[in-house]
Simulated assay, not measured.
Amino acid sequence: MSANSTAGDAAHTTVPAPDYALDAVTVTQERGPDRCTVYPTDADEETRLTTWLSLDADATCDLATMR
Rank of each mutant, 00 (worst) to 15 (best):
A59F: 04
M66R: 14
G32C: 01
R67T: 11
T60W: 06
A57W: 01
T6D: 14
D44M: 06
L55E: 10
T37V: 11
D58M: 03
D34Y: 07
S5T: 10
A7R: 14
D42I: 03
Q29P: 05
A64K: 09
V25S: 10
A17H: 09
V25D: 11
A10M: 12
H12V: 08
M66T: 07
A3C: 13
M1P: 01
L63M: 03
T13V: 11
A17Q: 10
D56P: 04
G8C: 10
D42Y: 01
R35K: 06
V38Y: 05
A59G: 07
D9F: 11
A64M: 03
D19W: 00
A64I: 07
E45T: 09
A57D: 04
R35P: 00
T13P: 00
T41S: 10
S2Y: 14
V27N: 06
Y39S: 04
R67F: 03
V38K: 02
S5C: 08
A24T: 12
A43Q: 05
D9S: 15
L55Y: 11
E46F: 01
M1Y: 12
V15I: 13
T60Y: 05
T51P: 01
A64G: 01
T41Y: 10
D19K: 04
D62P: 03
L49F: 08
A24M: 10
Y20L: 03
T60I: 07
D23N: 12
V38L: 11
C36G: 11
T51S: 12
V38W: 10
G32W: 02
V27M: 04
R35M: 07
L55S: 08
S54G: 05
E46M: 11
C61T: 12
H12W: 08
P18D: 11
L22V: 11
L22P: 00
D19I: 00
D23S: 15
T37W: 07
C36R: 14
V27R: 13
W52Y: 14
C36E: 09
D56A: 11
D58A: 03
V38S: 04
P33L: 13
V25H: 15
